[in-house]
Simulated assay, not measured.
Amino acid sequence: MLLTELTQLVFAQAVTPAVTIKKTEFSFWEILFHGGPFAKIVMVTVLLLGVFSVYLFFERFFFIRRMASKTDSNFMNNIEDFIRNGKIEAAADYCKTQNSPESRILEKGISRLGRPVSDIVSAMESQAQVEVANMEKNLNLLAAVPSIAPMLGLLGTVIGMIIAFFDLSHSEDAFSPKTLSEGIYTALGQTAVGLAVAIPANFFYNLLLTRIDKFILRAQNISGEFLDIINKPL
């Protein structure tokens, strides 16, 4: 009897058709634009903010690097030689030919030679502020992206969750976990994209600030060297 039951069980397993499990591949691109018109508008806006932040970063990065690469390595030595030889106008003209932030700062100081040191320092500090302002142009827009992008993503998530539960509450069919989960992962995709845009934008912003801080330190050193030159006894 037992042998007969075992034989029937083996036979039943042998004739049972194999169940094919369909594996669904994760597609983030499908999640990005899987939603209503509002979700698509939010997603496109966040992506445009990402493109805008990349453009601002490279535009400012190459501008700052181009400005920093214009200064001659023997710049201060040449300035000292001109001043030692009493060629003040030649020193100013040399600064104009360099056309770099450092040379423009020193040009302001050279043009004030003969006046009190406080006037020279004030003139160079004012020009340094102008140069820093030029480097920081549109940097406030880049700083706004890490704040706006997550907020837009969070707004899309909240609206998406509201729509998902609203549709579920007004559905006359039986409860479907698929419908609810689809609405939830679509809504969470908004926040994920917002963070994906905000994190690189924040990194770009701080990287540019670091390069500007290096320029400020370099400008302070050059200004100090210039003051040492004009105060050094002949």
Rank of each mutant, 00 (worst) to 15 (best):
K87G: 07
V117S: 05
E131F: 04
A187Q: 01
F82K: 10
N140K: 11
V197Q: 11
S169R: 03
I163D: 01
L154A: 04
L234S: 13
I88L: 05
I184P: 04
T24V: 15
F82A: 07
L195Y: 06
L152A: 06
C95Y: 00
T16C: 03
I163K: 04
T186E: 05
V132A: 07
A174L: 15
L168P: 00
Y205C: 11
K137A: 02
V130N: 08
A164K: 04
T20L: 11
A174W: 10
E30F: 09
K40T: 11
R84N: 09
R115Q: 05
F28H: 10
T97I: 04
L48F: 14
F63C: 04
I216C: 08
N138E: 06
L195R: 10
V121T: 15
M161F: 02
M135N: 04
M124Q: 01
E59V: 03
I88D: 01
M124H: 01
A91M: 01
I83Y: 08
L152P: 05
T71S: 11
L141H: 00
F63G: 05
I230H: 06
P177C: 07
F52M: 15
A12Y: 12
A149F: 00
A201Q: 11
F166S: 02
L48K: 13
V132I: 09
F11V: 05
N206T: 05
D228P: 06
L32F: 13
K22L: 14
A14G: 09
A128D: 03
M43S: 05
A192D: 00
Q98Y: 00
N221C: 07
S103Q: 06
L49R: 03
G153K: 02
N202Q: 13
L142Q: 08
L207M: 14
Q127R: 07
K96C: 01
Y94V: 00
L155H: 11
R66M: 10
F63W: 06
R104P: 01
S169A: 12
